[in-house]
Design a protein around this nucleic acid. Structure first.
Length: 883
RNA sequence: GGGCGCAUAGCUCAGCGGUAGAGCGCUACGUUGACAUCGUAGAGGUCGUAGGUUCGAUCCCUGCUGCGCCCACCA
């Protein structure tokens, strides 16, 4: 028997879904859900909870539907983030990175990875995510390493991957190159310094505006626009770089925009993408003035050397001012590129890096989506995907950090390198190249961008490059669920890698969910302090409540705003309701009866609830298949709370509470038997309905569903097998009429300020069916739920119109006639307005000729109904006058 | 500078070419056996704005306004 208090903690921990998650069904249709591997940098946040809940709903639903579901879990090594985190932890313990060897730092990171990984797995289990943990993979597994090396070599051999000296975005804090995607533009309050560049051979100067005065040591020209009349005559002249005695030329280049700054721009090829371009056109010298940490190097005057770039800026400005070379300072809003992980301003830097030429890969990825081989849900995300892939640039995949997949390339003593899957193969290549036996090879120091291995996740987890059975069975049969923020990082790359290595799209569908935000719609972040920890919510309200709330809030294409209160009011309250109704069922001895056949139900109320539940099941099915989890929870909610609890259980109560007759010889046997059978049918129907609820709810709230279906006597979870062709029309209509009568009486009582508990005599008129039999069936229900006694009435009455029927309520001395008259007049006025509107359409020839026949008929019917009602209400009004 | 999304009740959001919906909140009333984490009833919206298409527009199209996001190497 269930406890009176609903306490999810008391049972959630008792359930493990490991067995169902790892059970394979070789004969069933395969379906895979690919869990986006969480970073091993700590714990799961609300975004994970949403993403994983959605996936788990799909996985569980498909399992119930009979598919062979592989829900593949994994963890991501998350190169830069993880290394930064561990370095920070070490630093807090007084250990500096500089004092550690590569091996020592890696050892520390692996340790951290083990801890974090274990914590994440534990959290996934608390959330009830039913992936197959026996198949847990890590992006730096031995197998994954081999696969990554394999693909790297393949790309290299196909000429799609190369090493080159290029200008890249450099993160001075991390000391590494990063990809374009890892650059975030931030608008900051900055200054525009107007500097005087003195002419070398005459008096006077040209004014150059810059936001980065410290880079002037790297200047190798000043550019003006060839069409700029102001500066035409200066082109070819020399100016002196301030604070130095170095002379540079004034050049004419269309890059200089007369509208911007002073129209004359300093050219610093080593530290600006545009200037680098300009330097090629004019064969300018390239002077690097900073090291990997963003400190000034030996190419600047002595006093600036080893100085941090921002410190140097201050110093430069100070000196310029002293020397009278600073014309003015303007305050401006400025966009500056920052590293998304380090959150420091980036420096463009010219270095050797490895690049993937994505052009061809991208074309295939675009094509596949255009052809519909992969579909985004919601569809409009495809635009974003196309736009990025169409303008794709070479992808810098090397990182100057230690944590990650080491680049599978080996360098010879002379700078020659050999790309190979392992040292043996590299040695073989080197031997061939050098033509002698012993060559000292050293592996490339760099590691790969994390997303290189993430992009291979769909097939690496299935065993690639081995041609495993799983790979054949599940590749391209999977779904990926993720946020739009990683469409470029991950989805696009999985498409490219997948098509490249497997020749087929990895997944036919990608479901893109919204971002989780706080109740004000703000992004959750540690700095704002508005982060909600899903695990503490689970602790407080249960994982089911969190999952249910997330599902019901996840409308397509919209962000999910959540706070603790929402979990409480949406999730926990609903589950409490379910818990309580099951408890009530238990008190009444309801247990699942496998012999109960819904379509053979006898009692109208049973037929009604069977109909409602059946409809709900097919609605939920449709919703989940369309990824409408908000609708799915809505259907379950309304059916359980409104139809089942508010109506059916109330209908059932009087029947259940009737004392069971004892069959003796002196009582009419048939009536007793009928009651016994009716009570049994009601109990069976209650248990049946509850079981259906737990089944449809199982994908969303698995713990409570399992618990409650167990209480009802069901151990195996399956999707409800519902008869979609039930013909209960007449009975369903009868119950709908009953409901309307009850509602109308309640409403009228409230209007008339009659206490709901007061029993009122009523007379029914024009019911449309046999009043006597209707009353005999529902007399008890009408009495309990509406507080009316059907029979004859005396004295003053208030008639209530329900559909075609009229309920005359006895109210002698109980009501205020004036108020009642006002109420009725208002009702008539409203009805008339309604009628006018409908009639005006029916009198419109265009409407009659152009609207569909169905719509026209509907309008005509509506007018008839309104007329009928007006007539009755008016009749009532007249009679009130007489009384 | 391009592109995308959103605008519906006090709040959070569904919806839809044919008389506006839910949850929360609010108001009134109601509890001795499922549930106050509750029940019953009710108030509350000219569906952002201006045009257009249509017999009919909250829904489709266009402009505008406001908010949010993405992309882009500019001093």
């Amino acid at each position: 028997m269930l406890d009176k208090n609903f306490d999810p903690k008391s049972f959630e921990k008792n359930f493990s879904f490991d067995i169902e998650a790892s059970t394979r069904k070789p004969d069933a249709e395969p379906f895979m859900v690919l869990l986006p591997p969480p970073n091993v940098t700590g714990s799961l946040h609300m975004g994970h909870a949403l993403c994983f809940t959605i996936q788990d709903i799909v996985a569980r639903y498909k399992r119930l539907k009979g598919y062979d579901v592989l829900f593949q879990p994994g963890l991501d090594h998350a190169g830069i983030v993880t290394q930064l985190l561990v370095e920070k932890q070490l630093y807090a313990n007084g250990i500096k990175k500089e004092n550690l060897t590569r091996e020592a730092l890696l050892k520390e990171i692996w340790l951290s990875k083990e801890n974090s990984g274990a914590a994440i797995i534990n959290q996934l289990k608390i959330l009830g995510i039913s992936c197959d943990f026996s198949r847990l993979r890590f992006t730096m597994d031995e197998d994954a390493k081999k696969a990554v090396a394999k693909m790297f070599v393949k790309l290299f051999d196909d000429g799609l991957l190369y090493r080159g000296r290029r200008m890249v975005n450099w993160d001075p804090l991390i000391g590494s190159a990063i990809s374009d995607l890892e650059v975030v533009e931030k608008e900051i309050d900055g200054h525009l310094w107007h500097l005087k560049y003195m002419f070398a051979d005459e008096d006077g100067y040209i004014t150059v505006a810059t936001t980065r005065p410290e880079t002037l040591f790297g200047d190798t020209a000043v550019a003006v626009n060839p069409l700029d009349e102001r500066y035409k005559r200066f082109v070819g002249k020399e100016v002196v770089v301030p604070l130095t005695d170095r002379k540079i030329k004034i050049i004419a280049d269309k890059y200089a925009d007369p509208e911007k700054g002073t129209g004359a721009v300093k050219i610093t090829p080593a530290h600006d993408f545009n200037d680098y371009e300009v330097s090629f056109r004019h064969k300018l010298k390239v002077i690097e003035i900073m090291n990997a940490k963003g400190e000034m190097n030996e190419n600047v005057p002595e006093i600036f050397q080893r100085m941090d770039r921002f410190k140097a800026r201050e110093k430069v400005v100070e000196l310029l001012e002293k020397k009278g070379l600073l014309e003015k300072i303007e305050n401006i809003k400025q966009k500056v590129p920052f590293g998304d992980r380090s959150n420091v301003p980036l420096e463009p830097r010219i270095t050797y890096q490895w690049f993937v030429n994505c052009k061809k890969l991208a074309e295939a990825a675009i094509e596949a989506v255009k052809e519909g081989k992969t579909r985004f849900v919601p569809r409009h995300w495809e635009n974003l995907y196309f736009r990025w892939l169409e303008e794709i640039r070479p992808w810098c995949v090397s990182r100057q950090i230690w944590w990650g997949h080491r680049i599978p390339a080996w360098h010879g003593p002379d700078g020659q390198y050999f790309v190979a899957e392992n040292l043996e193969e590299a040695t073989a290549k080197a031997t061939k190249f050098y033509g002698k036996n012993k060559v000292e090879l050293t592996q490339d120091e760099d590691v790969l961008d994390t997303w290189f291995s993430s992009g291979m996740w769909p097939f690496v987890t299935l065993g690639w490059p081995k041609e495993t059975d799983d790979l054949k069975r599940f590749y391209s049969k999977m779904i990926v669920v993720t946020g739009f923020d990683i469409i470029f990082f991950w989805i696009a790359r999985m498409m490219m890698s997948g098509l490249y290595c497997m020749g087929e799209v990895p997944f036919p569908e990608v479901y893109i969910h919204g971002l989780v935000r706080d109740e004000k719609g703000q992004k959750m972040s540690k700095s704002k302090g508005n982060v909600i920890n899903p695990l503490s919510l689970c602790e407080k309200y249960g994982a089911d409540a969190v999952r249910y709330a997330l599902a019901s809030l996840s409308s397509p294409g919209r962000d999910v705003k959540i706070n603790e209160r929402i979990v409480e009011t949406i999730g926990r309250n609903f589950l409490t309701k379910l818990w309580n109704v099951v408890r009530f069922a238990q008190m009444n001895g309801c247990l699942y009866n496998k012999d109960f056949e819904p379509k053979k139900a006898v009692s109208p109320i049973t037929k009604w609830i069977v109909r409602q539940v059946s409809q709900m099941v097919s609605d939920v099915e449709e919703s989940i298949e369309g990824y409408r989890f908000d609708e799915a929870t809505g259907h379950i909610y309304r059916c359980l709370w409104n139809s089942f609890c508010d109506w059916f259980m109330e209908f059932a109560k009087p029947i259940l509470q009737r004392p069971s007759p004892i069959l003796t010889d002196d009582k009419p046997q048939e009536a007793c038997l009928r009651l016994i059978l009716l009570k049994k049918e009601i109990r069976d129907a209650i248990a049946w309905a509850i079981v259906q609820f737990t089944r449809v709810l199982y994908p969303i709230a698995p713990f409570i569903s399992k618990k409650l279906s167990g209480e009802m006597g069901i151990l195996d979870m399956t999707w409800p097998d519902i008869d979609k062709n039930l013909d209960f029309k007449d009975d369903v209509e009868e119950i709908e009429l009953l409901k309307m009568i009850i509602s109308s009486v309640r409403s009228t009582k409230q209007c008339l300020r009659l206490p709901p508990s007061e029993k009122i005599n009523v007379r029914l008129e024009n019911l449309g069916s046999d009043i006597e039999s209707f009353v005999s069936k529902y007399e008890e229900i009408l009495s309990r739920m509406a507080g009316i006694i059907v029979g004859e009435v005396a004295g003053q009455t208030v008639p209530v119109v329900v559909n075609g029927a009229i309920i005359h309520m006895e109210c002698e001395g109980k009501i205020n006639i004036k108020e009642e008259k006002t109420r009725l007049r208002n009702e008539i006025a409203k009805l008339k307005r309604n009628r006018e509107e409908t009639l005006s359409r029916l009198m419109n020839d265009d409407f009659l000729s152009k609207a569909s026949e169905e719509v026209v008929q509907e309008h005509k019917k509506r007018v008839d109904e309104i007329n009928d009602r007006i007539q009755k209400v008016d009749y009532i009004l007249q009679n009130l006058n007489v009384m």
